[in-house]
């Protein structure tokens, strides 16, 4: 092991130990420290308000398929955090992905003429057929994931990622398969514009950016949760398009 690496090891270990130390503190009276593992005190956290859906309204109890017109109608609380309470972060997040996709296009500096293909000209029949079979299933699964994002685990990112996987597999197996740059761009832009547009519509009609302007319905039903499904659809298209774009660029470079 080189001397430099040894130094790096020592320093990194010191760093890890210092971080670890933060978990071993025993608090004095009235002092705040980190919670022990598994003892997160949700009652003292903002999360409690989200679980109760009582940030703006005073609400203590949410009942599946019963409670109506809650401030955030999603049954999946993570979703309501991602796409409603903290949807500004999410907007930032898809922006990051968008920037990365654009950046990769710039970095790789692709010219239209010399695009490479990953798939061999004679990729195996099994692979080809299998992926042909999988492709619609994956699309369907992806769609299900983002459409039911507010009811079950899943959501726009996950759905988008699955959809992108479908295209990735297709690109890996079929050398005739081609996605036009322009269609990706259009999907990307439209999805992004709709997300910001939803936010701006909230700003215009309700007075604050990304505010929910639709009825939230009954918890647990498909048509509920206000703009959350719309946002998730936009996110899914955007993430799907962007991941596809990234993969496409990396393959073609």
């Amino acid at each position: 092991m080189k001397f430099r690496n040894l130094i790096a090891l020592v320093i990194t270990a010191a760093f890890a130990l210092i971080i670890l130390q933060a978990f071993t503190i025993t608090p004095a009276a009235g002092e705040i420290t980190l919670n022990e593992f598994g003892k997160a005190d949700i009652n003292n956290r903002t999360a409690q308000l989200y679980l109760n859906k009582s940030v703006n309204t005073d609400n203590k109890k949410v009942i599946y398929q019963e409670s109506k017109n809650l401030e955030s109608g999603s049954a999946n609380i993570v979703t309501s955090v991602v796409a409603n309470y903290r949807s500004f972060d999410t907007l930032g997040e898809i922006t990051v992905l968008f920037l990365a996709a654009a950046g990769i296009g710039v970095v790789l500096n692709l010219e239209n003429s010399k695009k490479k293909k990953f798939a061999a000209d004679d990729s195996s029949l099994i692979l080809n057929t299998g992926i042909k079979l999988l492709f619609p299933l994956l699309l369907l699964a992806g769609t299900y994931i983002f459409v039911y994002g507010h009811l079950s685990p899943g959501g726009g990112f996950q759905g988008g990622a699955v959809i992108a996987t479908a295209f990735l597999l297709k690109m890996l197996s079929d050398n005739k398969f081609e996605i036009k740059e322009i269609s990706i761009t259009l999907v990307e832009s439209t999805a992004g514009i709709s997300f910001v547009g939803l936010g701006l519509y909230g700003l215009v009609t309700r007075g604050s950016f990304l505010e929910n302007f639709m009825a939230t319905g009954t918890v647990g039903q498909l048509f509920s949760a206000g703009i959350i499904p719309l946002i998730y659809i936009a996110i899914a298209f955007k993430v799907g398009a962007e991941l596809t774009n990234i993969v496409k660029n990396l393959i073609e470079a």
Partner: peptide
């Protein structure tokens, strides 16, 4: 998991922190 569904029909159940 912090999801209100037929298994945990109410937020009275113990959920992990969603944030």
């Amino acid at each position: 998991a912090p999801i209100i569904n037929s298994v945990n029909p109410s937020n009275a159940a113990a959920f992990v922190d969603p944030i």
